[in-house]
């Protein structure tokens, strides 16, 4: 579904990714874990074409998107839930969702909206409330709902557990599991290594712009190195 081959990414003269190769297969949940500054968000941004990879290739469903414009990439069946939620705080929940389905027809929007409300009944209750006035967990649900509005085949989540209460995190991860059941491929970037790896089919560990380890989620959870570095021994 999504393949990164030996990707290097620069910010100006500084190289942030030193040849990263990652593969996400159709229907999988793949987790990418790593410490602050390891390059997790850079990797996601490279997939989105902002900044573009300076060398290597990014393939989406067999199509080379390395040099494509961000707007085009984001319209080709892939959706991203950006770090820090970034809901449109001045718009209502419903308007936020409609923005997510910007390039779809009205009928499609209505259908996906109902689907999102089924996944997150909470959002239905808050339909006419301004997004900025909701709690962090509700905003995260809205951000995921908004990404789902474009009926993506693949969804990328950047730190969905950031700043949320443990109970809410559990809910969010349950929903992510549910998305897999619906056939949506999930690429999850997390600092919350334990939860991200227990849910994932496969996982990657990113360190200083390089892939350090890759294995199934279960194996990584039991890997002594990972336990030491990310799971607190």
């Amino acid at each position: 579904m999504l393949v990164l081959e030996n990707v290097h990414t620069h910010y100006g003269k500084i190289e942030a990714l030193h040849g990263v190769s990652v593969e996400v297969k159709r229907g999988e949940i793949v987790s990418l874990i790593g410490a602050n500054g390891a390059g997790k968000t850079t990797l996601l941004m490279t997939v989105c074409g902002n900044p573009q990879a300076s060398s290597g290739r990014v393939m989406l469903e067999g199509r080379d998107i390395t040099r494509e414009a961000t707007a085009n990439i984001m319209r080709s069946g892939i959706a991203i839930v950006p770090e820090g939620r970034r809901v449109f705080s001045g718009l209502t929940v419903e308007e936020n969702l409609h923005m997510g389905g910007f390039f779809n027809t009205k009928a499609e929007i209505r259908k996906s909206q109902e689907h999102v409300y089924e996944l997150f009944p909470r959002l239905k209750e808050r339909e006419n409330q301004r997004a900025g006035t909701m709690s962090g967990g509700e905003q995260q649900m809205l951000a995921i709902g908004r990404a789902l509005m474009s009926k993506p085949r693949m969804i990328i989540l950047d730190e969905p557990s950031l700043g949320l209460a443990p109970l809410i995190i559990q809910q969010i991860f349950d929903i992510i599991g549910q998305l897999r059941e619906e056939g949506i491929t999930v690429f999850l970037v997390e600092q919350n290594a334990h939860q991200a790896l227990s849910l994932a089919d496969r996982g990657y560990v990113l360190e200083n712009g390089r892939i350090r380890l890759q294995d199934t989620g279960k194996n990584l959870l039991n890997n002594p190195e990972v336990r030491e570095a990310y799971l607190g021994g």
């Binding site: 707007a71 950006p82 449109f88 001045g90 474009s150």
Partner: peptide
């Protein structure tokens, strides 16, 4: 709506393919 989205949050607007 695209104008308003861009005013509210540029990154989010771009993540939606605008």
């Amino acid at each position: 709506r695209a104008w308003e989205a861009l005013r509210e949050d540029e990154i989010a607007a771009r993540s939606l393919g605008l």
